[in-house]
């Protein structure tokens, strides 16, 4: 089950906690992976730890020409692209009354617009080969909202709507488009929370613990597999029961 031998995958934000775990999990299942992100050194380290079947293409998700270059170089490095994991994302938290235009725009640009551009750039090859898996990492807050994250929640909700639309456009060509929505996961992004914030979060999580990046990666592996061919336009929530939707 979930064998990815012979498949190729591009993971954005692969230098982060969840992105790294996703890249490792896809690689372990046999896929060739291209790691993307802005921190070239961290990407190279991950590449070395993976060994064979790994490439690095650093790119900025707020730069349209850079995104096109990423799509081209990833396809060139691996010969084709079967699986795109849109994991790159940033936060610029602030309560809305204080949120600056730049904070709003930056988050939308990287998390939503960049993701759309990259997905559009890789669709052509997937359509030709009649196979594709597009998996975007959204967030629980894209569905529930979260104070201080109007920009982030809007972008993550946008990913869900985008994915449902693409899923309908591309289903007849063997391409599935889905989202994975993590709840609170132990990563450098959540390490920044104070103990009080963490306590407050855990009070809302029936599983009574933060999730692990590996638990998110397992969901991505499933959606990337041949076995998930009939699953499209869906959002897989992995959140310890924090929200049941």
């Amino acid at each position: 089950m979930f064998d990815l031998n012979g498949k190729t995958a591009l993971v954005t934000g692969a230098s982060g906690g969840i992105g790294g775990a996703i890249a490792r999990a896809l690689h372990r299942q046999g896929a060739t992976v291209t790691l993307s992100g802005t921190r070239a050194e961290a990407l190279e380290q991950l590449k070395v730890s993976l060994g064979e079947r790994a490439h690095v293409v650093a790119a900025r998700m707020d730069d349209a020409p850079d995104i096109d270059r990423l799509a081209k170089e990833a396809e060139a490095a691996m010969g084709k692209l079967d699986i795109l994991v849109n994991n790159a994302g940033i936060t610029r938290d602030n309560i809305s009354m204080r949120m600056k235009d730049e904070e709003w725009e930056k988050v939308l640009q990287v998390n939503l617009t960049g993701t759309f551009r990259l997905t559009r750039a890789v669709m052509r090859g997937m359509m030709k080969r009649r196979f594709g898996r597009v998996i975007s990492i959204t967030s629980i807050v894209g569905v529930t909202g979260n104070p201080g994250q109007a920009n982030y929640a809007a972008a993550k909700a946008g990913l869900i709507g985008m994915s449902k639309s693409l899923a309908q456009e591309l289903a007849s060509r063997g391409i599935t488009v889905n989202c994975v929505a993590p709840g609170f996961i132990a990563t450098p992004m959540t390490d920044g929370l104070t103990d009080d914030q963490k306590k407050g979060i855990l009070a809302r999580v029936p599983a009574d613990r933060l999730g692990t990046p590996e638990e998110i990666a397992a969901g991505v592996v499933y959606l990337a597999s041949e076995e998930a061919a009939y699953v499209t336009g869906q959002t897989l929530h992995i959140n310890g029961g924090m929200a049941m939707i």
Binding site: R124, M127, K128, E169, L170, S172, R173
Partner: peptide
């Protein structure tokens, strides 16, 4: 509309 894209390709 997707067929027309594919024809062009």
């Amino acid at each position: 509309s997707l067929d027309t894209v594919e024809l062009v390709m």
